[in-house]
């Protein structure tokens, strides 16, 4: 259904990717840990490797829970589909897009 307006109504998204330069927003959802009330949102370079993303961004956040073990082998998903991380590959090359959601469990 089209928006009913009194005139032309065209406004850009207030969170479009270009507002983040070479970076993007990525959601990370620890699916089977209810301590985290929601998935987290991070700003990360699209060219960042998976290994760096894990070490610099995901691990410090997940360590909010003192039981977090970074060496544990988690299963991963991307937007509900199975996902296989590769440490040396960039987030963009792994197919992770702006505001998409990674999840892990196990």
């Amino acid at each position: 259904m089209a928006l009913k307006t009194i005139g032309t109504y065209e406004f850009p998204s207030r969170s479009r990717q270009e507002l983040y330069g070479e970076d993007m927003l990525v959601h990370v959802w620890w699916k089977d840990n209810p301590m985290f009330c929601a998935a987290a949102t991070f700003r990360a370079p699209q060219a960042m490797s998976w290994a760096d993303f894990r070490a610099a961004i995901v691990d410090p956040w997940a360590s909010s829970d003192p039981d977090y073990d970074a060496s544990h082998a988690f299963s991963w998903g991307l937007d509900g589909q199975p996902f296989t991380p590769e440490p040396g590959t960039s987030l963009a090359d792994l197919g992770i897009g702006h505001k998409h959601t990674l999840s892990f469990w196990g």
């Binding site: 959802w29 009330c37 929601a38 987290a40 410090p60 360590s63 909010s64 829970d65 959601t101």
Partner: peptide, 11 residues
Amino acid sequence: GRFFFMGLPQL
């Protein structure tokens, strides 16, 4: 300790 979410949530 005290549990806090050390990050920003998905809205």
